[in-house]
Design a protein around this nucleic acid. Structure first.
Lengths: 298, 298
DNA sequence: CATGATTGAGATGTTTTCGTTATGAATACG
DNA sequence: CGTATTCATAACGAAAACATCTCAATCATG
């Protein structure tokens, strides 16, 4: 039906429609004038209707030509856009990327990473989903997720991982608290204190790690208050509700009524890894990983 | 830049993207398989990115390919649509047609004509404008209007005209009126009556004609009430406000409280002509005229 | 593990298509 | 009335797209 019409014909037609002059249009297209005449004659034959009314002295569009002109202009622009978009997707500058993250990672540098990635690859649409580590791992394997941020130590079959962040856990206590006067604290010093912690289900890995740290220190933390946002947690600490154990990056929030103390244990450290399916060669993924790796250096 | 990409390449790509099989796609396109391989290799070279990940046993889309697939499908559909539209415009089955009409024509068969045209050429968009005859004539010459309906008797330089309707003017009076009992009336019998007429500016030609008819009969009509819509005029007549002179087609409205009487004069006739610019060969215009001419026969 | 079937890619010759040059015809303009 | 401009036509040549044949790789199957 229309399968003999090629973009070349539309390009030629558009040039003549713009110039209303076969000679100038041919020059613009870098072809000889008779070639253009033939192209357009063929197009007109295909359509079964003239596109120009031409004498040797004047060229003007017919109704059909005027209509086709607008359409041709749009279509050619769309082809360009589509091809450029495909190029960008091929380079990893565009497309959709599904990123999962364990809740506790939100406390860390994820927001900064997202911002950094968005500015580096503005064409990429990010789908962010908060998911428990286990769910992420299956989702990554199923291809429902391209990238995951999780607290996973051991290797997982079929996935590749890289540590992107390591940060210490700190004790946080109210400035008004008696213990706050001492420059050094051991975890055991908190044995009798009230704790403010996030709920276990929100970040099971981190929760377990915190509890185990306490058990190592010889006590089980008495949680008097739960809080889903780290921001709230710290403000509760400041208000004197209790003490807490939080990732070091929180210090940057700049709460004046809270003091932080090192936990002198090797396990008092949280590792955040970025994970992706082995063999996933989507260019967007590598673009993202490239940005994620900048976190390692800071 | 993208000027080497042709629709052929998009068609080939789309076939393979749909089939995920070079052989079947080639069959669908009625070409040999190696030709397709080459087409797609060229497209990929143009884009600088692979569109398929292929082994000898499996073909699957890359991200760039998946994106391009949707775009290609849309673009090819749009090209088809654009070419079809151009064909239709060329045949006069589509486009925009600007139609002017003198106000008094609205009283006649214009609505029926519009309806008839719309069903015959649903692709054509009609721009209807009520304009005085004089304005229409200049608008037709300027190309601001393609077709006009007017009451013009004499020929006009540069325009072509055809009478599409001729209808008599009738006296209309309330059934309750004394004169309504007489089966035959002459116009002079209305000399002393109150008249309901449309305002002069609304249809100057028809207005003048009505007044001249009365003057011929030896009186000037005393207009006690003006009314912009003919519908209203007749209802006022029925209400006994006065008598009127109206085009015969109004009788079809079926007012029971109104009686109509012939005016036995040759001038008691209104001619409606359709006019267009001489040499206007827009296909839509001729499509419209073709429908307009059906009015002559009824 | 070997063999055959299937599938995409490569190489080569042919056909088709497209473009260029040369020429012709029509129209506006001096 | 002649000239210059401009689009169409014809003939030729080049480039491309395509078909055929062949190969290499992979998967299924006995």
């Amino acid at each position: 039906m229309n399968t003999d019409v090629e973009l070349r014909h539309l390009r030629g037609f558009l040039a003549v429609a713009d110039e209303l002059h076969f000679g100038r249009a041919a020059e613009r297209l870098q072809v000889a004038q008779p070639a253009l005449s033939q192209q357009i004659r063929r197009l007109e034959a295909q359509l079964g209707t003239p596109l120009f009314r031409r004498s040797t002295r004047r060229v003007e569009l017919t109704d059909a030509g005027a209509h086709l002109r607008e359409e041709a202009r749009r279509i050619l622009a769309e082809v360009d856009a589509a091809l450029d978009a495909a190029r960008r997707v091929g380079r990893g500058d565009a497309g959709t990327l599904r990123v999962g993250f364990a809740a506790s990672v939100m406390f860390l540098a994820l927001p900064r990473l997202i911002r950094r990635f968005r500015s580096a690859f503005p064409g990429v649409h990010l789908e962010l989903r908060e998911l428990p580590t286990g769910t992420q791992i299956t989702a990554l394997r199923n291809g429902e997720l391209e990238v995951g941020f999780l607290r996973q130590l051991s290797a997982v079959e079929g996935l590749r991982m890289e540590r992107v962040m390591r940060e210490r856990l700190l004790m946080a206590l109210p400035r008004t608290h008696d213990l706050a006067r001492r420059p050094r604290l051991s975890l055991a010093d908190l044995a009798a204190e009230d704790f403010v912690l996030f709920p276990r289900e929100l970040a099971p890995g981190l929760y377990t790690q915190v509890v185990e740290l306490c058990l190592d220190a010889g006590f089980a933390p008495r949680v008097v208050q739960e809080s889903r946002e780290l921001y709230t947690t710290v403000s509760l600490v400041e208000a004197g509700v209790g003490v807490s154990i939080i990732p070091a990056s929180v210090r940057k929030m700049g709460w004046t009524g809270v003091v932080y103390r090192q936990i002198h244990k090797r396990q008092a450290e949280t590792n955040v890894s970025v994970a992706w399916r082995a063999g996933n060669d989507r260019a967007v993924v590598h673009s993202f990983l490239q940005v994620a790796r900048t976190l390692v250096r800071g």
